[in-house]
Design a protein around this nucleic acid. Structure first.
Length: 284
DNA sequence: CTTGGGACCTGTGAGC
DNA sequence: TGCTCACAGGTCCCAA
């Protein structure tokens, strides 16, 4: 589930149970996810108060009153389950026995339970001094936030200068712009009318000027919709995101293009091993 | 430096 | 029903 809009949705969902509250108990049920957990993670979390919940790119940042920040990445399949509610796609009850792939459980002051569940374990957690987050190896080379002031046609033009890689790959590069993933790159390029196969360095200024608002709009609309919930839809309930219904091209192979007046059909191609969806007629 | 491919994992759905 | 295969929202690391 996790590109920028999904992570932002998770962050907002965690606020009511975590913000300002102490972690009364932390249970770490395995030694690692993608990498080993930090030393004594459970002890360092237990008793800490969560001062605030932030986000940088696709990373959740839980600032603790111990001077450290818990950095969380959801990988491909990571979810934050909140006791009694759903953030992600599973139902979860406080007091229930941990389910498969429930790797970290945080029992919060106030009775909330937050469970990190990640079947594929591409996710990650680390603890790092709050004053030096930008120095963390996973955060230090991340590009501008697309919804922030540091992102513009100028910054894109500079980053794309003489780049031969296809723009699809360039936009997936977190060092160029933060937070885009496979879904929203396809969606943004569709909105901007740019072919995903074009070399990034060959994109004209006029198209870059269209691309920036296209990226912003698709992310903002997705956040507004609570993100996208793909597959695994059995536990339908009001907490699920619904932006997947607004996809113009992602997972729409063979469907007619939704652009006004365009006769095209959505195609699926593979670029550096990953699916790209686009309309060959209105994306140039 | 740039680019593409492999690797890390488990689960699901389609097709036979 | 059961098997195999392709594919899945990420990204690090390494070879060319």
């Amino acid at each position: 589930m996790p590109e920028l809009p999904e992570v932002e949705t998770v962050r907002r969902g965690l606020l009511p149970v975590m913000e300002g509250r102490r972690i009364e108990r932390a249970e770490v049920r395995r030694p690692d996810l993608r990498w080993p957990f930090p030393e004594r993670m459970a002890e360092r979390l237990t008793g800490a108060r969560v001062l605030g919940l932030g986000r940088r790119s696709k990373y959740l940042l839980l600032e603790l009153d111990t001077g450290e920040t818990l950095i969380v990445h959801l990988g491909m399949s990571g979810r934050m389950l909140v006791g009694g509610q759903v953030l992600g796609e599973f139902h979860h009850d406080v007091g229930a026995a941990p389910g498969p792939h429930d790797h970290v459980i945080l029992d919060m002051e106030g009775g909330g339970r937050v469970t990190f569940n990640d079947a594929r374990r591409f996710g990650a957690m680390d603890l790092w001094p709050s004053g030096d987050l930008a120095g963390h190896r996973l955060l230090r080379s991340i590009g501008p936030e697309p919804l922030g002031n540091g992102f513009s046609a100028d910054t894109l033009a500079q980053a794309f200068e003489r780049k031969a890689a296809p723009i699809k790959a360039a936009l997936l590069d977190q060092g160029i712009v933060a937070g885009l993933g496979n879904i929203y790159v396809s969606e943004a390029l569709a909105r901007a009318g740019i072919s995903p196969t074009r070399a990034a360095g060959q994109i004209g200024r006029d198209q870059l000027e269209r691309l920036v608002p296209a990226i912003r709009q698709v992310l903002e609309e997705a956040i507004e919709a609570g993100g996208s919930s793909l597959r695994d839809h059995r536990q339908a309930n009001g907490e699920l995101g619904y932006f997947q219904h607004a996809f113009r091209v992602y997972d729409q192979e063979g469907n007619p293009c939704r652009t006004e007046g365009c006769p095209g059909t959505i195609r699926r191609i593979v670029q550096s091993g990953r699916s790209t969806y686009y309309c060959p007629d209105c994306q140039r």
